[in-house]
Amino acid sequence: MMVPEALALSAVLFTIGVIGVLTRRNAIVIFMCVELMLNAVNLSFVAFSRLYGATGQVFVVFVMTVAAAEAAVGLAIIISIFRHRQTVDLKNINILKG
């Protein structure tokens, strides 16, 4: 049923997402990497639901809905920071520290 393969692919995609978040400095790219992590998890849920029934697939629907809401809020926040700084590069976003 290809479940182990799907789980391995999901783990690889999740790791790529994590590495992307930790190494990239552009807010949009970081956000895309977070989305990659969430979708990697969705793949796992779908794979597990072949073993255990529909719960995993229901979970995926919820995750996609939540990710859409999160994207709306996240992009709005990125736009508001762009209006202040004319950049979304995290290197330049550092007035709060101490």
């Binding site: 789980l7 807010a27 977070v34 998890v41 597990f48 508001s80 920071i81």
Partner: peptide, 28 residues
Amino acid sequence: SAEAALKYFLLGAFSTGFLLYGIALVYG
């Protein structure tokens, strides 16, 4: 305020990813 929101959002979404993967593996 905008910077705080951006940082909170990125870190919050990042941690949600971990939480969700944890849920998936526990479910698995």
